[in-house]
Each structure stands twice: as C-alpha cells, then as structure tokens.
Design a protein around this nucleic acid. Structure first.
Length: 852
RNA sequence: GCGGAUGUGGUGAAAUUGGUAGACACGCUAGACUUAGGAUCUAGUGCUUCGCGGCUUGUGGGUUCGAGUCCCUCCAUCCGCACCA
C-alpha cells in the first residue's frame, strides 16, 4: 500500500501521548482560548459515526487556534452518572461503577484512534467521588443561599437570618413562593423547627411538597425538560402528576437574568428562542375580581389589561380551590360531574382534544371592578390549574378560546377594539382604537395597557405583573447511580453535611431497587446515617454534574477547591462550545443558572458559561433514520478507521455538509475523500513509496494555488464552514498535481494548513521534511495577496447610477489605480464622450461609480 | 395556533459583500491501460434543441443596470413550544 494510514496514525497518536503535545498551561502569558465539547454519556453501545462530528469540528478549531498562538484548553471527560448503567445493574447485579468503567475504556479507545488533540490530563468523570465532592459542595452553597431581589443576587442565608432577627420580614424583598409576614419579636419566639421551615421557603435548594412528574415505570420523578409529549424522554413511559416532598432548585429566581443574559452571548437565534419560550416571560397585570357576595376574590393574570371592559365572564380551572365554595346548590351536581369528567381525562387526551369546548356554570357571579356588572363564573378545563392563578377573565372578543367558550355556552361577546367582528371570531389585534371602554376609549392599545394598569392600581384591585412559564426544577431522583444529596435530618430538620466531610460517597447496596416501603435505593444501605441521623436517600439528577464541569477542567485535580482562583480567572469561561441542540431547555439552561449563582457568591468572575455555541447536526443513517442500535443501522467509526484511516474519517465527516445541518451518512462519497489523501500522498512519493521532494523554487502558478488555499482555509475555519475547507484542499491538490509540483516551498505551509483537518498525514510529511517537533506547534501560514495578482476581480462600472459595463481588474489594485484604469478604458471613453467626470466613487471590490 | 430554521442538478452540496449559478465530491456515460477491475488515468455530464438559441435556484409578485442572495405573498419539509390567559 502506498499511503499506509494505519501505520502513520498509530505512530503519531503515540507521539502525541508521549510528548503531551496538547497539554494546556494554566499559567501563561499567551491569550487563552477554551474550546469545549459536550461530554458524552458513556453508553454500552460505544460511539457511532454521528458522535465524533462535533468533536472533529472542535478539534479543527482548537488546532487552528494553537497555530495562531493561543493557549488552547481543549479537554474531554464523561457524564458518567445515568440511567442505563443503573438499569443494567438491576438486570444483572453488576455494579454501575464497573459497567461505567468498561464503557469509558471503550469510548477512550474509540476517541484515541480518531486523533483528537484533547488534554487528557484534565479528564473528568461526574461519577468519581473526587468530582462529585464538588457537585455536592455546590449543592450545599445553594442550600445555604437565598435570593435577594433588592441586590438582584443570591446571598448567604446568614444575611437573611440577620434580617429576620433585626426586622422580621419588614422591608424584605426575597424570591419565595410563600409570603411570610412576622416581626423580629415573632422570629425570636419561633422554635428551631419553625425557623427552619420558614428558611426552607427561601433557600435556593429547598425541600417542598409539590406536584411533580412521577414516572411509575422508571420509579422516579422527572423534570419538565425530561418529558416530551406527555411521556418520559427516556423510554417513552407515561408520566402522572403526584404530590410529593422533593428537593427543588429555585431557578425561577434567575428567570429574568437568564433571559437578559441571552443578549450578550453568541448562540443561534433558534436556541435563544427555545430558551426564551421556555422561560416564557409575559407582562401584564394581576387583577382580583370580587365575588358578588364579597366573600371571595378571584385573582387572574392577563397580558391585555386594555381589554378589561371586554370581560363578560370568568373561568376557573376545574381543580381551582374556590370552586367548591363558590358553587351554588342548584349547580353543585353539574359542577361536580364536570370536575369528575375533567379529572378523568389524561394529559394526553387533553392535548389531543384541544379544540373540544367543555365547562360548567358555578351559579356564582363576580363583579367587574369598573362597571360593577355581574360576571358569571364558569369552570372549564381549557384553563390550566398549573399556570398563572388557575383562573382567567374571559375576553371573548380578543381571545379565541374565550370566544369558542362564549359561543358554545351562549355568553356575551362585547367588542372593545375598533374593527373587531365579534360574530366571526376572536380578534386580538394590537393596532385599533379602544371602544366601549369608558376612560380607555379612543386610546391605542399600547396607551390603554398602561392606563388600565394605572387605574387598576389606583383602585387597589390589582397591579402590573410579570409572569413566567419557567418552573422551579425538581432536583430529587429516586435512583442509585447519581450523586447522593449531602443532607441529613436531625429531629426532622434538614441539615447539610459539613463541607470538610465531603464527598458523601455512594453506599453499597444489595439491590439497585427501591425498598419495600418505596424508599429510594440508597435507603437499602446498611447504615445510611450521619451521626445517627438519617441521610437523604434520593440522589441528584443527571444535569447536576454537567452544570459546572466546564470549570473543573480548568484545574481538574484540585483537592481543596473546585478549581483554584488563578486558573478560574485565567480561563474565565468557554469561548466556543459544541453540542447538540437537544439540550436547549435542560443542560444549557441549568448550567447558565449555576454559573450565575456561583458568580453571585463570588466564586466566579463570569456569569455566562458558554460564550459561543455551535449546534452540530445529527448524522443520520443512510436510510435517513436516526442511527440507533434499535434499528440496526449504526455505522461504527472503528470500521471506517480500519478501512480508510482516521484522517479520511475526519475529512469525510466535515465534507458531508454544513456542520449545523443534519445529514445522512453516505458511504459512497467517502471514497472521494480517501482518493484525495492518496493523491496528495503520491504527489510527494515515487513509485516505490519513497519520499520525494524537490528544492526548486516555487513557480508563481504554484504560489498562487497555495495562497488561494491559505486564504480560503483561514476564512472557512473562522466561519465554521469546514465542508468547503475540505473542497479547498482538493482543488489545491488537483492544481498542484496538474503542475507536477512537489517542492518543499509549497509542501511546508501545506502541512501546517492541513494539520487541523488531517493531523496524522500532516505530521508524517512534516517529519519527512526533516522537522523534529510537531507541526501543530508551528505558526499558521500568512496569506499574501500579491501572489494572487493575476486573478482578477469583476468591477461593475456605472455612470450616474446606471451600470454600463463590467471590468476585470487585479485583486490587489489600489483605489487610485482603479479610478485611473477605469477612466482610461475605451468603454468609459465612449460613455464620457470627452466630458470630464465630476466624481468617481470606488467602493473596493464592489462597484465603480462615475458621476458625470 | 405561536416561534425558529430550511427549500439550488440524478445525489451531498458551493456561491464570502447584490455581480459569469451549480465550485468540490458522489453517481452516470464513453474511452485508455488491463486476463480481470470495486485499481488508475482521460474526456463528457443542470434542462431543452440536430444546431443557433431558449430556459433554470419551491410558487407568484416587487426593488435594482443586475437577485439564489434584499422586500412582500403563498406552498412544502423539519425543529421547538402549545388551551400559557
């Protein structure tokens, strides 16, 4: 074989490992650049060819940045806690630790053979006690913090206690779901247990009774982002709502900052929009409607307070707590029947039968705060108990669901905006004038919204309010293979395990199943106690370890901190992050939350983890389906590397198409890429495969080809267009082949140029040229435009704004010279007819405008 | 329904700033060298026409000397959210 890729690749992989070629320095005068891939979960199936796509792209960029003189941090690790290893343990009894280690070994072997420039000295594993020690430590910081809305920051819980001691709840503006009100004296009089219960309502990691998504098949609770279409994301099992006491994270305290932070990071609009929608900020007003007998008030949230005069009835969710008290005797039977019907419908039924109108009249009336009109109170399952207040003021002229409801039950539909046709359907226009609305009449929608809020506040029936869709994140998982939550219960009071006793290591258990009385698996451990007090038995969710791992890489082996201050200050945050778009509402949101929290508490100087994000597409199987063991259509990178080599795999995965696009694997065209590498090899080897390079000076043709390629490769890498980069190499190789060019002067820069894409062949040729050190350490070749003189650029020449002719001019011609050449051109002379132009405007590379 | 993205040959796709559409690669056709070819090399390859020429970037319009690119309309596909008040 002429081009013996497997020999070359093994040789250089060994060289890199031995010489620690890609180790990054934490102390450096050089500018830093941090390139990170989302670390993989080491599954039993190993890597398929889709996994390395992002790794190859990030590796190209890392290697490129090293050539530009940056100190590049490019680490890799494993998100090694997770469900599959635990399920395997349940089936076979093998400890998840063993399974995980075996899988990691496979991953490492597969990654190594592709020739990535990872700094393996910094490897992290979320399941190793040295790592999760600090995950637990962060949890304790969250447990011991509250959110002060005055400073818009998380603060130490002691400052809250101090406030309670001095002022009670007076003057406090804290983020909490509960509204406590007590004086300093009240606080002093409370028992330890009472105090701890109050504090729990402020902690950022807190224990609360709440409705959670319970998945009976998996035996655990799930966060909202772990559910897709009403079933669990993993396995597709049904999920039900269940009230349970669970640890949660008060991510809602950060809703506004998570939203604002999106403006200063360089992510795709698609991902930003997904996060914005998930956070779901809506501005409007909270309004309380008194009931007719004045005994109750129904609080609603609306984004359109300008339509307040269009309210003709009220609707409560069937589960709303006031329903029973409001319902009149006459209506009781009907209401209860409806509640029963609503409860019987599953989430999925509700989702598929969205258009079905149903409801019942309670017999009670609310009073309109401005007109005093009686508004019938209905219940209907189109109003959700879990969003806002679980009640709405119905404006049928402006809201289609209200309109459908009103039409179905024959309720009034008053128009309040000019141009609404209430017979046709709802019309939520924002451009008309307000009508039939007393003091709001004649105003625009925008003016009416602020005037209505003002009036509502003056009348003390409500106030302007911002609502979020984002919920607090459930943090407990009833599983074995996760980080133990470092909390014990002393006399029923939750307390953190002292920091200097971390990590709280996972105990050994006889079975990886819940106990007979439904306790999580950790409760099976022989002595799951701390100082005789029971320890928390649930573990942390998968996203805990991945929410901060980027910082651990900065100083991965530190024992007395999650990373030292100097390293954190130097590396700051990730400059460029590669990963799939499927983590938009999970990992990418949680890790922004934890980063902001750690910043608040003074541990970090940055408050966004990932400055730029690239979402690589998926590689689908040749049949266009997702690659999966289940479909038996997986292409294994091992086979590709064995047959064509790692450099071919790398080039080919980049050549497949735009990085961010999903595309099918195409076995046929891999040959083309492989052919290129062989052609390139043969250019510098004779028939007996001996290296053959001439010392002749490069011709201008050859230099032109080289510099065209330098320009293209630099530009392509800068804009992450790696597929066209591969094409540029092929064109260059074809041209050099035609010129029979095999001289040193061209090959040297070419080796450096191709190294990010195909590092093994680059190193091999580089060493054959007589160099001792790795080509990865050499400065990237500069583009010199003067070699491209012969290539021309088209300039449209226009007279008084009308285009007259196209003119080809050298690419590096200066502005004055262009002007002169244009005016001397015979075409121009023809159009000028002897007149002197008033003005000549040359926009470089674009257009020449002659004003006569 | 709302939001985001994408529509270019037989296929994957290029076209950087509004300036020769289809680079590069696959596939296909013909040929050369071969006992052989799934090796290598050469030529051809958007559609249409014998040819001159005409047509061509999902549809229909607009702006412009000039539009794949900018603006509007509609259509299709993919993704996210979804009785979110």
């Amino acid at each position: 074989m002429d081009y013996n890729f497997s020999e070359i690749e093994q040789k250089w992989q060994a060289f890199w490992q031995e010489n620690k070629t890609f180790a990054a320095e934490n102390k450096s005068q050089q500018a830093k650049y941090y390139v990170l891939d989302m670390f993989p979960y080491p599954s039993g199936a190993g890597l398929h060819v889709g996994h390395p796509l992002g790794y190859i792209a990030s590796d190209i960029y890392s290697r490129y940045k090293r050539h530009l003189g940056f100190n590049v941090l490019h680490p890799m690790g494993y998100d090694s806690f997770g469900l599959p290893a635990e399920q395997y343990a349940i089936q076979t009894g093998q400890h998840p630790k063993i399974t995980t280690e075996e899988n990691i070994a496979t991953y490492r072997r597969q990654l190594d053979q592709i020739g990535f420039s990872f700094d393996w000295d910094r490897e992290v594993r979320t399941s190793s006690p040295e790592y999760y020690k600090w995950t637990q430590w962060i949890f304790i910081q969250l447990f011991n913090s509250w959110y002060n809305k005055k400073t818009d920051k998380a603060e130490d819980l002691n400052s809250l206690i101090e406030h309670f001691v001095k002022n009670g709840t007076a003057n406090l503006n804290a983020h909490s779901d509960s509204t406590h009100a007590f004086s300093a004296a009240d606080w002093a009089a409370k028992s330890e247990k009472e105090k701890s219960e109050i504090l729990m309502d402020y902690r950022l990691a807190f224990l609360a009774d709440s409705y959670v998504n319970w998945c009976p098949a998996l035996g655990t609770v799930l966060a909202n982002d772990e559910i897709k279409d009403g079933v669990s994301e993993r396995g597709g099992h049904p999920v039900e709502q269940k009230k349970m006491q669970q640890w949660s994270m008060r991510i809602t305290a950060y809703a506004d900052r998570l939203l604002k932070g999106l403006d200063k990071i360089d992510w795709s609009d698609a991902i930003k929009e997904i996060q914005r929608n998930w956070i779901g900020k809506s501005k409007g007003a909270a309004i309380a409607f008194n009931t007719e007998n004045r005994q109750h008030s129904i609080e609603v949230f609306t984004t359109r307070p300008d339509t307040i005069f269009g309210v003709s009835f009220m609707v409560l969710a069937p589960e709303h707590e006031l329903v029973a008290e409001l319902t009149t005797k006459d209506q009781q039977k009907e209401v209860e029947a409806y509640q029963k019907y609503a409860a019987s419908r599953s989430e999925r039924e509700r989702m598929t039968e969205v258009k079905k109108v149903s409801g019942a009249f309670t017999g009670a009336y609310a009073i309109h705060p401005f007109t005093g009109k009686k508004l019938p109170i209905w219940i209907g399952d189109y109003v959700l108990a879990g969003y806002g207040t679980g009640a709405v003021m119905a404006v049928p002229s402006g809201d289609q669901r209200d309109w459908d409801f009103a039409t179905h039950f024959n309720l009034e539909i008053p128009a309040v905006i000019e141009g609404q046709d209430v017979k046709e359907g709802a019309d939520d226009r924002k451009d008309g004038k307000i009508i039939n609305s007393d003091f709001l009449n004649e105003l625009s929608v925008k003016e009416a919204i602020s005037k209505a809020i003002k009036a509502i506040e003056e009348k003390a029936v409500g106030k302007g309010k911002t609502n979020f869709r984002l919920r607090d994140a459930v943090f407990s998982r009833q599983r074995y293979w996760g980080e133990p939550i470092p909390i014990y219960f002393e006399n029923g009071i939750a307390k953190a395990v002292p920091e200097d006793e971390l990590p709280l290591e996972l105990p050994e258990v006889d079975k990886y199943l819940p106990t007979e009385d439904g306790e999580p698996p950790l409760a099976r451990a022989e002595d799951w106690t701390y100082n005789g007090n029971p320890l928390e038995a649930s573990t942390m969710p998968g996203w805990a370890g991945s929410s901060w791992y980027l910082f651990r890489y900065m100083d991965a082996k530190r024992e007395n901190g999650f990373a030292d201050q100097e390293s954190l200050d130097y590396w700051k945050n990730v400059d460029l992050y590669f990963g799939g778009a499927e983590h938009a509402t999970g990992h990418l949101l949680y890790s922004r939350f934890w980063t902001k929290f750690l910043n608040d508490r003074g541990y970090l100087t940055v408050d966004e983890p990932f400055q730029k994000l690239i979402n690589q597409g998926m590689i689908l199987a040749e049949d266009g389906q997702k690659m999966s063991k289940r479909y038996g259509n997986v292409v294994n990178p091992d086979d590709v590397v064995a047959k064509y080599g790692a450099d071919t795999l790398r080039l080919f995965e980049m050549f497949l198409g735009p990085l961010e696009q999903s595309k099918p694997w195409d076995t046929g065209s891999i040959e083309g890429v492989h052919r290129f590498l062989r052609k390139f090899w043969r250019l510098y080897h004779d028939g007996d495969n001996h290296f053959k390079v001439s010392d002749e000076k490069a011709s201008s043709e050859e230099l032109k080809s080289l510099h065209k390629t330098i320009k293209k490769i630099r530009e392509d890498i800068e804009r992450f267009s790696f597929n066209t980069g591969v094409s540029a190499f092929m064109i260059c190789c074809n041209e050099l082949n035609e010129l029979k060019c095999n001289n040193r002067e061209i090959l040297e820069p070419l080796c450096i140029l191709i190294e990010p894409y195909a590092p093994h062949i680059a190193e091999e040729l580089w060493s054959k040229l007589g160099h001792q050190d790795s080509v990865s350490k050499v400065e990237f070749p500069e583009f010199n435009a003067s070699y491209l003189v012969e290539s021309n650029h088209k300039y449209p020449v226009s007279f008084n704004g009308k285009m007259r002719f196209m003119l080809e001019l050298p690419i590096d011609m200066g502005k004055d010279e262009i002007e002169k050449t244009v005016l001397e051109h015979e075409e121009a002379q023809k159009w000028l007819e002897g007149k002197t132009p008033k003005k000549v405007i040359v926009v470089p590379k674009k257009i020449v405008n002659v004003v006569v």
